[in-house]
Design a protein around this nucleic acid. Structure first.
Lengths: 165, 165
DNA sequence: CAGATAAGTCAACATGGCTGACTTAAAATC
DNA sequence: GATTTTAAGTCAGCCATGTTGACTTATCTG
């Protein structure tokens, strides 16, 4: 970091550019989450519930430990929202067949409906920006965002099947 | 949103791509904030303090109303953290000269030190990703991120002086 | 069988949002 | 000049969501 302002830094790595990067993340994330936050109020749910619904929807039969490692929160924090979602019929838990200690998680029909409602909002939000920016910009966006993810294990989610030929 | 899956959608607007967009924002933001969150513990501060320090650092002499409109939180929420920062000597308030009702905010020397410490962490985090992705990808990243910001007024922060010639 | 692991639970606490009601000082308007 | 509006702050209480620590239960593994 000490050489941030030392002379021969490429334009896109100057302090001003990097500060704009900080702010872009702040503003984009703020606006990206505003829609669902508002929709969830109707159910008495919050952003934490949303994250659980999203990732369970994306990975049916996921177990609790896996979910915890994605969310990076404690078991106790997760349990508060997860047990609400189960009690209110948005998520179903079934014992694992290979390992019966596990509770495999999946959305109920009601959960699927809510998941689509929420993710349609966010997909629409992103689609609008992608359309405005165009496919080449989206390619660059993807590249930078993946590089912003700290751990290779998390980056693996975004690998593309290699084009052949 | 209804036509998300209807046939002739360009590849970069397909549901899978958009869902990856959702996750990219989640993971990138999670990792982007982890560093400062950790550093702030030492001071007994949290993410809310960080945002105040950041934006006051960026816009010295900003008044409280302006800060509120950037942060999109209530006066009461802001006041909790702002008054801590003032009491502990990280931010100085001076009455506005044109309008003496206003309290203009600026970082103290101590505040400047903390601001740099925090933002160097985040600038380094972003610089690493920018370097890996390269200038063209960064251009695309900027474009998409700006388009992700909901309001034109907020987008204006990121306008570039037009290249002449 | 012993120990490790998956999941859940209880309790207490911190942070950072929120609403509502109210005060004070200064500016702006009629 | 009196009235209204605005900028800022304050008190009180609520809620969501994160934390630590201690502990239980069931099941799997060596």
């Amino acid at each position: 970091m000490a050489d941030l302002k030392s002379s021969p830094a490429p334009a896109f790595l100057r302090e001003t550019e990097l500060r704009q990067g900080i702010e872009l993340l702040f503003f984009a994330y703020r606006d990206f989450t505003a829609g669902p936050d508002h929709m969830l109020e109707r159910y008495g749910f919050g952003r934490a519930h949303h994250r659980v619904i999203y990732f369970v929807g994306r990975h049916p039969q996921m177990n609790v430990t896996e979910l915890l490692s994605i969310l990076r929160i404690t078991k106790q924090s997760l349990n508060r929202v997860l047990s609400q979602l189960v009690r209110q019929g948005f998520i179903r838990q079934t014992p694992g067949s290979r390992d019966r200690r596990q509770r495999l998680l999946e959305l109920t029909e009601q959960g699927v409906v809510l998941e689509r409602e929420l993710s349609e909002n966010q997909r629409g939000f992103i689609a609008r920006a992608y359309r405005e920016a165009g496919p080449e910009a989206v390619e660059g966006f993807r590249k930078v965002m993946i590089d912003l993810i700290a751990e290779p294990a998390d980056r693996a989610r975004f690998e593309r099947p290699k084009a052949k030929g």
